[in-house]
């Protein structure tokens, strides 16, 4: 597992470095004293974990988290006790540690992060784009082309400048917009059910008024997309 540390205070970064020393298989790739430098780095390279101080001069904490173009898990490290409730609103934030942090609490945090990493099986990326060749979709991950059969794709979820492509076993994070990938997907199999979701229609297990079930995933249906879904169902 690799990580970066983002904190404007030298002493704070030193403490996190020290805590990381106590964890097996955790490598610190870089340290940053500003958010901007960190972002530049993350645009070029992917990491598993970002240790982030939410209070840094001239930078808007949670906005940074929101617009982060990275699939990394974020562990907030802060002196502020009161932002935990807001932190829960962000899927990418896996833990919230209040300074001073004990080695024990840090270990617990890293176990949580490790488990989450294995669960979602995310493949880190540095590349972009996807291509349609025959009945398959090719996505570019770490400068390698990975082939995905349409039949393997369960659904696709928009996440800012990225999309999550979910297959039965994996979750691929791809640099693309939902719109771009929609053009590459066959209309008879894929359907957009919501501003942020495209589903493989053939994988629907169950349907409710406002959502569909695809394997174990609940995908919302927005009112504007409902008629099209119903039309497709009637065609079955």
């Amino acid at each position: 597992m690799n990580c970066i540390i983002v904190d404007d205070q030298d002493s704070a970064r030193l403490v996190v470095r020290q805590l990381c020393e106590g964890i097996k298989d955790l490598d610190i790739i870089e340290e940053f004293s500003s958010a901007i430098e960190a972002i530049k780095f993350l645009n070029q390279q992917s990491v598993d974990v970002i240790f982030l101080d939410i209070h840094m001069p001239g930078f808007s904490g949670f906005d940074f988290v929101q617009t982060l173009k990275s699939a990394a898990q974020i562990v907030l490290i802060t002196a502020d006790k009161d932002l935990a409730i807001e932190a829960y609103e962000y899927e990418s934030i896996s833990d919230y540690l209040v300074k001073p942090i004990t080695q024990e609490r840090f270990k617990k945090s890293m176990n949580k992060v490790k488990n989450k990493l294995h669960r979602t099986s995310m493949i880190q990326h540095g590349g972009s784009s996807s291509d349609l060749i025959g009945n398959d979709l090719y996505i570019n991950i770490d400068r390698r082309l990975t082939k995905l059969k349409f039949d393997d794709i369960l659904f696709i979820k928009a996440k800012g400048d990225y999309i999550d492509v979910k297959t039965h076993k994996e979750m691929y994070v791809v640099h693309s917009t939902l719109k771009k990938i929609k053009d590459k997907l066959p209309d008879n199999i894929f359907l957009q059910t919501h501003r942020s979701y495209i589903i493989n229609f053939t994988k629907i297990i169950d349907i409710e008024d406002n959502s569909v079930l695809i394997e174990k995933n609940v995908i919302p249906i927005s009112r504007s997309n409902r008629p099209e879904l119903i039309r497709r169902l009637n065609l079955l």
């Binding site: 006790k81 935990a84 409730i85 932190a87 829960y88 899927e91 833990d95 919230y96 540690l97 209040v98 609490r105 617990k108 176990n111 949580k112 406002n210 959502s211 995933n217 609940v218 919302p220």
Partner: peptide, 29 residues
Amino acid sequence: ALTAYNFDLVVDYLVKPLQKDRFIEAINQ
């Protein structure tokens, strides 16, 4: 919420009254 982060089994923290969209997000975690 801060205390909640200490518990590994906790995947989300919802404030009442429950809202549809936020509830779905929690289940997806």
